[in-house]
Design a protein around this nucleic acid. Sequence first.
DNA 1: TATAATTGACTGACGCATTAGTCAATGAAA
DNA 2: TTTCATTGACTAATGCGTCAGTCAATTATA
Lengths: 210, 210
Amino acid sequence: MVAQKKLTRAEQKALRPIQILDAAFEEFVKCGFAGTRVEDIADRVGVTKGTVYVYFETKEKLFEAMINHFSVPFQEMVAIADRLSGSAADRLTSILGLCYEQIPEDRATRELTRLVISEGQRFPDLIDRHHDQFIAPIIAKIDALILEGVASGEFRPIPVEFSDIVVAPILTTTVLRLIFDDRRVPTPNKEAFLRTYFDLLFNGLLAKPH
Amino acid sequence: MVAQKKLTRAEQKALRPIQILDAAFEEFVKCGFAGTRVEDIADRVGVTKGTVYVYFETKEKLFEAMINHFSVPFQEMVAIADRLSGSAADRLTSILGLCYEQIPEDRATRELTRLVISEGQRFPDLIDRHHDQFIAPIIAKIDALILEGVASGEFRPIPVEFSDIVVAPILTTTVLRLIFDDRRVPTPNKEAFLRTYFDLLFNGLLAKPH
DNA sequence: TATAATTGACTGACGCATTAGTCAATGAAA
DNA sequence: TTTCATTGACTAATGCGTCAGTCAATTATA
């Protein structure tokens, strides 16, 4: 049992938009934009539809606000990556490990990916922001790391324009979990997966005597 | 101008379901299941809503029929793969090349992937069939090839349960095209992409002196 | 402290638009 | 003339968005 501290009206009012956004996330993820009823969002919070419209003008505005609320951009992750030291391979491993924690393993980011794929056509701004805040910074960072590794002779020369290939296992894991979730029998072992991923990646990427 | 051959009533009637399924594909892809209006599907064919309901009982049945119509299973591809000869690497290259042609490059398969991601929750059968007809056969084939290559000493030992990693660039390309399509500036060069993909894959997967 | 006045967050019934699904009427092909 | 694919007007239901009214929390007054 959660301690139900009695809230003042001001406190409750300040909390409402966040409660509504959380509920909206669940419903929009479950039913998509068109399939979601505003009343179901309200029910989830324990208020009526009218209350939702006190805080958000329209269903579309609510959807966009929800997306914004759950879009924690990756800038901090890139900042962490900038502070790393070690070989290019070490730093690439670290940043890809961070990505793995932040994208397929984090439910909000994972489901956000679903909404980007399913609702992107109807909300072009969503796609643009998602690209600018999530995809572009990561890809730029990885491109830079590859270029650096190639320049120093640590990596074999690889065309940078295909760095999608390097992050592919992360996006693939995200999408497979979105589709099959717990349907596919074996629950993936995180550590073993990452080990195999990096093994495959680096034994192709690392310069070796031949 | 397409030659408008005059059709008999019987010919036209035989054609109608297919015309409706094609139109349904376009609309469901554009708007999703809940967002699509049956009347828009009819308009696309040049008939009225009533005609659609002559051929399909409900909107849901129409959706499912459309998915079936556009789900060309990969069995033939697996059959081709079985007839291949050469090293395990050669055969793996061939089958992955076929997958690349069939999944991200083929619009129907690509958009089907979108629908599986966005509507899968509402249509669990869709997920099951998609897994059984598309995912499982390919993964099984690739697992078998890896095991064979490992057994013969051609490949380094790799845990088979992570063969998703091997196909990851294909699913990633599919999803990135679904999200960004022609938004991202550089149009990807197919040949160069595949070359880089296989280079990275095999220089990790192939057994090497070390 | 007790009571009255005020506020404002929330309600819930309703208007209006949309759309799935029906079916008697139609008219063109056979 | 008969057949039957197609129509289009219809209904029933759904769901977005509105707003006059309610009542509990808060503040002012005695």
